[in-house]
């Protein structure tokens, strides 16, 4: 009997020993810190349970920051998804030479990871007041884009910069889906008399729709959590919610420590919703990619 019990115990132990370090690590350094923040969002200054802290998110200053972040993410995700799709579709189905594909995918892999601080520097060097393109447009064509109202350190400037990693991520994710479109579908559509545009509108886009919308949700979450690019580009002139939270953690701005928890909780809710949409739609998109 004791021997048998011993083997059962060792068996359970060897069954779990490989995952225990992983589970312990992620519990302490990923789950608990997050749960801690979420619980803090429901606590008042005295430590008791309350919704008051969360309600402060609806005060104009924070609500505006959330709204600004949501708009930057919406526009950069929509434009990034749309333009990235156009580029990928042109390269794969638009009659361009086949050798363009591999470099495009490799480059997108690099560009999707070329985010953060260096990306902001690259755009300042290109479209800042002394940037290459700004200066060339002025010298060659007499076009002063800054006199025309363009400003890199603005809402649209930020969206324009975000497009760099948004578009490349879109190209990276949508390329396999585009390659999954069967030639037979196009041939069938054409032999029924469809034009190219009709084929895209009535066959290809509906098939790709779950992938397109899913990736859009992923791109949204991707830019919503971003901070380094905005910090390097605009300082704190565009008060994205991440920039606000950063300042709050550093202890510069808000007096109420629980407010930080509430902001963080709001961010988790938004990115969680976006990611859930992505995962659900991706499972649906895989149906067509077999």
């Amino acid at each position: 009997m004791p021997a048998a019990r011993g083997t059962i115990i060792t068996k359970t132990a060897t069954n779990w020993i490989g995952v225990i370090p992983f589970l312990a690590f992620t519990a302490i350094f990923l789950l608990l810190p997050t749960v801690n923040i979420v619980l803090g969002a429901f606590r008042g200054p005295d430590g008791g349970f309350t919704f008051d802290t969360l309600m402060k998110l609806f005060e104009p200053r924070l609500a505006n920051s959330f709204w600004l972040s949501i708009r930057v993410s919406l526009f950069s995700a929509a434009l990034g998804a749309g333009l990235g799709f156009l580029v990928a579709a042109s390269v794969i189905h638009g009659g361009l030479p086949a050798w363009v594909r591999a470099p495009m995918v490799t480059f997108s892999g690099v560009a999707a990871n070329f985010a953060g601080v260096p990306l902001a520097f690259a755009f300042i060097a290109t479209l800042g007041r002394l940037g290459l393109v700004t200066v060339l447009l002025k010298d060659w064509f007499g076009i002063n884009i800054y006199a025309m109202g363009f400003n890199l350190i603005s809402f649209w400037g930020l969206v324009f910069v975000y497009l760099y990693f948004q578009m490349s991520l879109m190209i990276l994710i949508i390329t396999p889906a585009l390659e999954g479109l069967r030639r037979e579908w196009r041939e069938a559509a054409e032999s029924l008399g469809a034009t190219g545009l009709q084929y895209w509108r009535m066959v290809a886009i509906p098939v790709l729709l779950p992938s397109l919308l899913g990736t859009f949700a992923l791109l949204f979450a991707n830019s919503f959590g971003a901070i380094a690019t905005a910090q390097a580009l605009t300082g704190s002139s565009q008060s994205l919610i991440t920039v606000q939270l950063f300042a709050q953690i550093r202890g510069d701005v808000l007096q109420d420590p629980n407010l930080g928890y509430a902001i963080a909780f709001g961010m988790i809710v938004i990115t969680a919703v976006a990611n859930t949409i992505y995962i659900v739609l991706r499972t649906r998109a895989e149906k067509w990619q077999k």
């Binding site: 990923l30 997050t34 950063f246 963080a264 988790i268 990115t271």
Partner: peptide, 10 residues
Amino acid sequence: VIPVIVIAFG
């Protein structure tokens, strides 16, 4: 899913 800044805050 969880923004980096939130994990760091935690």
